[in-house]
Design a protein around this nucleic acid. Structure first.
Lengths: 111, 111
DNA sequence: TCGTAATATTGCAATATTGCAATATAGTAA
DNA sequence: TTACTATATTGCAATATTGCAATATTACGA
């Protein structure tokens, strides 16, 4: 990759992009949705739900945890992962703000 | 990359992930925000706003247009890009729905 | 027509991502 | 301790992404 002159992006832009990158994959979305669906934050059977091998799921979980979108809790042999409400809320409000700004415009000036 | 058994993800999951992928980069976010800020959907001076060369910006715009997040309109020599409200709204409501589900839970069962 | 401005495309190097087999680690139970 | 279960890590191949220089294209004006 070429060199990204990161210093010229705002902290928010960088944070947002890294959060989104952590979700921008079908498997990650599926994991996210599964963690939300299975009310209790169930752990390892994510592997059974997804068409992916255990190491791959583990990697995805690691990345998502790194990005901060999920949290992990060791419980004996199992590990309990769950979605971080606060972070999801931040993403949600980011898009709400954008959407609001877009809606305020009378109409698309050219497109 | 290994083979993603795409067939096992839902259409929504795939669509969402590809939309998010089109934004999950500081430059893409910056472009998005700029297009929203400059009320009229101004065209090529995005290049002057970003720390990126013209071909690179052009590529980003192409990808974002491919993903459907922005629209382009030829106006003589210039091209007028603007954000697609509808698509952004879809992303927004996706995260709203998730956020809502998360909030409905009494508390995080383990984390 | 020629020149210029705005944008796109091509081709390539550098790097990142994805996926998995094999292996390692850690906890728990007998 | 041994065996088992759950998860993580390593190492690697395949592919995707990012960025840009060079070049092409397209539209306009003189």
């Amino acid at each position: 990759m070429g060199t990204t002159k990161i210093s010229l992006y705002t902290a928010e832009q960088i944070e947002m992009s890294s959060l989104l990158k952590a979700i921008a994959h079908p498997a990650r979305i599926a994991i996210l949705e599964y963690l939300i669906k299975v009310d209790a934050c169930i752990c390892g059977d994510i592997v059974n739900e997804l068409p992916l091998a255990q190491p791959t799921v583990s990697q995805h979980l690691k990345e998502m945890k790194n990005a901060g979108i999920i949290k992990g809790n060791v419980e004996g042999t199992a590990i309990c992962y769950c979605v971080d409400k606060v972070v999801v809320a931040r993403i949600q409000s980011y898009f709400s703000a954008i959407s609001l700004k877009l809606d305020r415009k009378t109409d698309d000036s050219c497109c």
